[in-house]
Simulated scan of single mutants.
Amino acid sequence: MTDPAASIDTTRFVELTGAAYPVRIEYQWLNSERADAPIALFLHEGLGSIALWKGWPQMLCDRLNCRGLVYSRPGYGRSTPRQPAEKWPVEFLSLQAREVLPALLDALGIDARERSRMWLIGHSDGSTIALLYASAFPEALAGLAVLAPHVFVEPMAVEGIEKARISYETTSFRERLQAYHDDVDSAFYGWNDAWLNPAFLHWNITEEISSIRRPLLAIQGYDDEYASMLQLDEIKAAVGHTQLVKLTQCRHSPHRDATDAVNDAIAAFVRAHQRGISA
């Protein structure tokens, strides 16, 4: 295993001008010395950022012998916060997949060859973005692994997000989350307001993701507080070649609750398909 201190680049910033307004994106390379290795690109959860991933992306990249690319989406971490009074639309996840992520890849000079070898690793909202990217650009990746993905809205998700709002406004939750975002209210209310928008209750991407052609691994815990196993079952129904991993004693963050099982599953999945591509 490489020395983690030598593998993690310092945080950098890149300007994207093709979005609704110019934004500065915080990003970080892992194992950048492996110039010819495939990229594992990490897409964080609805309240996540580079910092909130902690050490897991580095651990997985070392296991996969990949370079890693981690970034904070607009509104999160040290990236440009939401503009005052800005409300994210119902299709905010699609906009991230179809506009922001491709613009970031362009800005970082990641060409078509590198994209065709790229693995997307998403968690929660990041998993949904990964699915939407794979459906919109079916040839521009090698495959994807999604943890606790959302493809439609369940009542338990709304209940969990309502509880999160109460906790944010009445407990130390806001203070703890502030360690991971320059503008914590931007991150929290961007996510929370979007999911609690009544129009979002009808959001459903199961038909849209049926165009995914690349290998797909979907992982979820039985104790997920935001979604049931119907999410994975609907993904499997839409994308028949999906490989499912359903974990016991695991909540909404499989990479934290069942790290070894998740790493083993992703490593086996990626290596099996890399062998197939080589053959």
Rank of each mutant, 00 (worst) to 15 (best):
D36A: 10
E234M: 03
A164G: 09
R251M: 08
G221N: 08
R67D: 00
G109L: 07
G221Q: 04
R34P: 06
D9E: 13
A134Q: 09
G46I: 12
A97Q: 00
D125G: 05
D260T: 13
S253G: 14
L132G: 06
F152R: 07
A237H: 11
R78W: 15
A5V: 03
R73Q: 10
E162L: 04
A103N: 13
T242G: 14
G18F: 08
L60K: 07
S211T: 14
A227P: 09
R73W: 07
D9H: 03
P254C: 08
L216C: 06
V90G: 04
L104C: 00
A227S: 13
D193K: 03
G126V: 03
R214M: 10
P102G: 02
T259C: 12
H44I: 05
R256E: 13
I25S: 00
W203N: 01
E162T: 07
A179L: 14
N263V: 15
F137H: 07
E208Y: 10
S94Y: 14
D106Q: 09
A258R: 15
M156H: 00
C66M: 05
V151S: 07
R73K: 12
D223H: 03
P254L: 07
W203G: 02
S124K: 08
R113M: 13
Q178V: 01
A179Q: 14
L132M: 11
L131C: 01
S186D: 05
D3C: 01
G109A: 08
R256I: 10
R115N: 00
